[in-house]
Design a protein around this nucleic acid. Structure first.
Lengths: 233, 233
DNA sequence: CGTCCTTTTGAACATTGTCAAACACTGTGG
DNA sequence: CCACAGTGTTTGACAATGTTCAAAAGGACG
């Protein structure tokens, strides 16, 4: 397997790796691999023990989970960022499965190396705290979103967030509707109807394309809150 | 306000504080307070900036959140453990509110002190990583519980978890049913009916008292998974 | 063009929430 | 000690929300 050397700088620029000692970073890169995956390839399966910390360089990855024949999408990982840090550090079984959504390039850092560097490099240990805090808070926000809102409200707020990301009232969904439905905690059928249900609030849907024609109205209905929808803090 | 000195050992024994330098621990204890709160007192409100890291010494605390006039219970904190660590470390607004459920004794460590010690004490920084990983994984499990299971299944698994905690087929609920409903993501009325719905699987309810008369049957229905229900790893 | 998959639509159904009322429990003050 | 208020719980009827199943429509791709 090819070494991850060509992507050294991209990795180094991630907040997680930016402040660590050069020697620690070298140690991590030494055992690293890059791999290219086609779409819809399973990368990890929940319940397994973490062999690698994964870094998405290009493409995108779906984190999902199954139980009793049901399946739900929990998050999408986009470049450049890592996933399953907590499992790697604790050396505990994955709680989520991961599969590529599209052709993706992924760096694999052996978990043992990550833990070894965590034990010796204090700056790295602190960067992990920052990263985990962020992840924790993101999941708490997601839980509030699920428990405090109806599916229609979740969709409305999702669209407002996309609007914020793209800085535009018209944009394309970056996600298959099927997966979006799962992510928002509903069935595809229900999502389809939810889009219709937002029409009165100024949402126009044409295939993948969304147009928000009455921002004030939609915002009034969605009532977004920084304590749920802000994805930066 | 009284200093937390009398509870020094209980705090020191927490995994979060066990490995840190003596001098760091002193620095934390120096600025600390203990306070006794009556039941149903608001301790913190979501959106505020974290002044203190809280440690529950006795009693219990409800973590909850509100939006648009709705409210949901997210967790219960029982002795001896801390809460809102992530907000304290990131110095970011609380995502949850907290109130005492019963008469409670709580230690308050000034957030600034906690962050200062985090910056200088490497063992403490690593202990925080362990704690945050655990919290993160707990919330992920909770999300899976919410998204993959019906309310009846969540209740069944909750009862099995209580059975595990008490090591007994007959036990009392430690929580008001009203709050349990909110925690499980349903209304009190729905919970009441859910208890009835579990009767066929060998669950007998008398007020607060639960008796599991057919463990095999209930387990068959609940189908618990370590990747959702195990609250230790 | 045909196949496969996603999306949409309709209808029936299941689950969950809402509202109102009755009931049970707790603690207070007369 | 009892009456009473206040709160939590249960029950019933109903409404809203969400799911399932089936089928049609639309797109992507070999």
């Amino acid at each position: 397997m090819p070494n991850a050397e060509p992507y050294r700088q991209e990795v180094r620029d991630l907040a997680l790796f930016a402040d660590m000692e050069d020697s620690s970073f070298e140690a991590l890169m030494r055992g690293s691999y890059v791999q290219n995956f086609p779409p819809r390839i399973d990368l990890i399966t929940e319940g397994e023990t973490p062999d690698f910390l994964h870094i998405v360089i290009s493409g995108s990855v779906d984190l999902f989970s199954s139980w009793n024949g049901r399946e739900t999408s929990l998050a999408t990982v986009r470049p450049v960022s890592t996933f399953i840090l907590a499992a790697t550090i604790k050396n505990a079984p994955y709680l989520m499965s991961a599969r590529t959504l599209e052709k993706s390039r992924i760096i694999l850092l052996p978990s043992e190396d990550v833990r070894a560097v965590f034990d010796t490099d204090n700056a790295f240990a602190r960067a992990i705290v920052t990263e985990l805090s962020q992840c924790y808070r993101a999941v708490v926000k997601n839980t509030k979103n699920l428990k405090l809102r109806t599916s229609l409200e979740r969709l409305a707020n999702y669209l407002l967030r996309q609007r914020g990301r793209t800085q535009s009232d018209a944009f394309d969904l970056t996600t298959e509707k099927r997966r979006l439905a799962s992510f928002l905690g509903m069935t595809p059928e229900n999502l389809s109807r939810a889009f219709k249900g937002l029409e009165p609030y100024g949402v126009k849907v044409t295939g993948n394309h969304i147009e928000i024609t009455d921002l004030k109205d939609l915002t009034g209905f969605a009532n977004p809150s920084p304590l749920i929808d802000d994805h930066s803090s």
